[in-house]
Amino acid sequence: MQDYQKGLALNLLAYAVQKNTNIDRLCALSGVALSELRDEASASPSLKQINALWLNAAYLSQDPLFGLHFGESMQVAALGVVGELIRHSRTIGEALTHAASFAHLITDVLTMVVTASDQLFTIEFVPNVKRSRESPIVFRQMMDFFLAFTLHEVDGLILEKIQPVTVRMPVCAVDQTEYKRVLRCSSIQDSDKYVLEFDARFWEEPILTADYELQAVLLRKVNVLTEASRQKGVVSERIHNFLLANAYLGVPTLEAIASNLNVSSRSLQRKLREEGVTYQQLADSMRKSLALHYLQAGQHPVKEVSYILGYNELSAFNRAFRRWTGTTPASYQKQQSGARIHS
């Protein structure tokens, strides 16, 4: 049986690397052996080790919102079999119902309750009171993680960046600006509960566009790149890896990347200039690779591919694609379709 808690710990370590954290020091401080986490036959990490990983990851990355940013970045494919159930659901409602049913396999920090009405559907994360009292700081990091992860994974299931109608959670002393950005809600209501509320129209939204085959390939590639370059600390490589890992959700803005890496946009731009590259160049390279993949696959119309890649206007995508290839997306897709027929 798949060890989901061990898998979550491994993904936490992988994300910490993306934030330029020394993984060997993180494991040493947390009393965790990376070789044991990778060994399917070894025991799951203890509660003490899990708590230490969260605490030390936030400390070494110098990111007090480590859990929130980790949740923004993690992919549903990392959940293994549970992720497979989610992505093979017919609708958003069905996917979330599956997620709620299997949440206990991933964590004992909370249970997930999903309810729907004519106007709204609600996801409530019900805390394990005992766990919340054992280590309040770790508990808050993990609750932030699940709020962000759940919201952002819905983006991978439909062609729309879904926004909550309401977010309810205990408002802490930390500036709410980053919570509002990650959770896409301008007003976060203070509450003793952790709740995301959405417009009911999304409940029956069909799952059509998530390309999880591409995601799996990208994740394997980024894991190799991360392992090979984790000691280099090159900012452009970290951004490239981040873009690869999240490419099936489109290309994020510079501001989103900077916030996730816990630096200012200006500082990130300066560091990239020092390496002789711009964020636009990195993003364009990723957009070109994705555009070629989607158009070659022939499963999405050009307008849909344009949206996936973050273009507000089809004309902007057409101009960019012509700059990359010398032809239009429609012409390229037609050529690829003809090549498949004759192969």
Results as ranks from 00 to 15, higher is better:
residue 121 F to V: 03
residue 122 T to R: 15
residue 122 T to W: 13
residue 125 F to A: 10
residue 127 P to T: 05
residue 131 R to I: 05
residue 132 S to M: 09
residue 133 R to Q: 14
residue 133 R to N: 14
residue 133 R to M: 13
residue 134 E to W: 09
residue 134 E to N: 04
residue 137 I to E: 14
residue 137 I to N: 03
residue 138 V to E: 09
residue 138 V to S: 03
residue 139 F to G: 09
residue 142 M to L: 10
residue 143 M to Q: 09
residue 143 M to W: 06
residue 144 D to T: 05
residue 144 D to F: 01
residue 145 F to M: 05
residue 146 F to I: 09
residue 146 F to Y: 11
residue 148 A to S: 14
residue 150 T to I: 12
residue 151 L to R: 02
residue 151 L to K: 03
residue 152 H to R: 07
residue 152 H to A: 00
residue 153 E to W: 06
residue 153 E to N: 12
residue 154 V to I: 15
residue 155 D to R: 15
residue 155 D to W: 15
residue 156 G to Y: 11
residue 157 L to N: 02
residue 158 I to F: 02
residue 160 E to Q: 09
residue 163 Q to D: 12
residue 163 Q to S: 04
residue 165 V to C: 11
residue 166 T to A: 02
residue 168 R to G: 03
residue 169 M to V: 10
residue 169 M to L: 09
residue 170 P to R: 08
residue 171 V to H: 10
residue 173 A to K: 15
residue 176 Q to C: 01
residue 176 Q to H: 01
residue 177 T to Y: 13
residue 183 L to H: 12
residue 184 R to N: 08
residue 187 S to P: 11
residue 190 D to N: 07
residue 191 S to R: 04
residue 191 S to H: 00
residue 191 S to K: 02
residue 192 D to W: 06
residue 193 K to T: 13
residue 193 K to N: 02
residue 194 Y to G: 00
residue 196 L to G: 06
residue 197 E to R: 11
residue 198 F to Q: 13
residue 198 F to L: 08
residue 201 R to C: 00
residue 202 F to N: 03
